[in-house]
């Protein structure tokens, strides 16, 4: 089937590309653009590893077609660190041992990044519900939740 042209903003930069309509966004980011930070686990919407931010909202990139981001703004985990410096959320993950297996981490980060932008001072319960769509199969959510909560505390204390 013929490819379609799409133009969109990816981590702040304008991008032009072609994609087969049946290619989902996660595969397109990984194989089409070489951005392998976005991970794929289940590819049917259950695990959350593939979460990216599209027009400000966290979405499962395995459940969107690449052609659907034509005209949109897409953010992936590669866009979080600026000038070699980790984002506050990434730094908090490192500090609190929230980066456990590493496989689910990009999805956890992008979910929490989107969530914290609209919910600047969540409770622990809010954070747990927000990441309920990101499956952790290894050690549990404790470090991840602590990282999210300290990020908001740090942001809140900023003048």
């Amino acid at each position: 089937m013929s490819e379609r042209h799409l133009s969109f903003t990816l981590n702040g930069e304008r991008r032009e590309a072609n994609a087969d309509p049946r290619m989902h966004l996660a595969d397109f980011l990984r194989h089409g653009l070489g951005l392998t930070g976005t991970h794929v686990g289940c590819e049917h919407g259950v695990c959350g590893a593939c979460t990216v931010i599209v027009d400000g909202a966290p979405v499962r990139s395995c459940l969107m077609l690449a052609v659907q981001v034509d005209g949109c703004t897409v953010e992936t985990v590669e866009g979080l660190a600026k000038g070699g410096e980790l984002s506050p959320l990434q730094q908090a993950f490192a500090n609190h041992h929230g980066l456990q297996c590493g496989f689910c981490t990009p999805g956890m980060l992008m979910t929490l990044e989107a969530f914290l932008r609209v919910t600047p001072s969540p409770t622990e319960q809010d954070v747990r519900i927000a990441i309920s769509g990101n499956t952790c199969r290894c050690t549990g959510y404790q470090g991840i939740v602590e990282a999210a909560l300290t990020t908001t505390a740090a942001k809140g204390s900023r003048p």
């Binding site: 979405v59 499962r60 989107a114 969530f115 309920s132 769509g133």
Partner: peptide
């Protein structure tokens, strides 16, 4: 209904 990443779509 689902999670924040499924309700957004």
């Amino acid at each position: 209904v689902g999670h924040i990443q499924t309700r957004s779509r």
